[in-house]
């Protein structure tokens, strides 16, 4: 099971990287969202796959019995939420870029690299 999940997680990450390398910013955004998902699955393996029992103390018990690793779950929960915030934030940026430039092609969204007199720009790209 562990190997299967590792393959799945890494496979998702591979697909995500492939999408991130696209020049369409929305595609890149979706890739980054996928990247977070794949990462979370890999993180889950840090706590190992074993018990299917959730880490919830039964009524009446004082301590937790055999269960999945709670620490890894807490980390992933934090990571999910952070990944969500980052993805949406990037979405807002892409929307802004679209509104100001009318394009979501990364090659045309290049205002940041074009600073200084035109002469210099020609030098840089020519």
């Amino acid at each position: 099971m562990t190997i299967l999940y590792a393959l799945t997680g890494a496979g998702i990450i591979g697909c995500a990287i492939f999408m991130i390398l696209s020049r369409n910013l929305v595609r890149m955004l979706l890739g980054l969202s996928l990247l977070a998902t794949g990462t979370n699955l890999l993180l889950f393996l840090a706590g190992r796959i074993g018990s299917e029992q959730p880490p919830i103390i039964r009524d009446g018990a004082k301590a937790l019995g055999v269960s999945a690793d709670p620490v890894a779950q807490a980390l992933i929960l934090t990571a999910i939420v952070i990944g969500f915030a980052l993805t949406v934030m990037l979405g807002v940026l892409v929307l802004r870029a679209w509104r100001s430039g009318g394009t979501v092609d990364a090659r045309e969204v290049d205002a940041a690299e074009m600073v200084g007199p035109a002469q210099e720009r020609d030098d840089l790209h020519g």
Partner: peptide
């Protein structure tokens, strides 16, 4: 992409992580 997300959520559910599943 969403499909992947939901199936990973299910994976969490199936491996004893209901909190993660809910959040995901």
């Amino acid at each position: 992409t969403g499909l992947t997300g939901f199936s990973i959520a299910l994976t969490f559910m199936l491996n004893g992580a209901p909190d993660l599943a809910l959040t995901q």
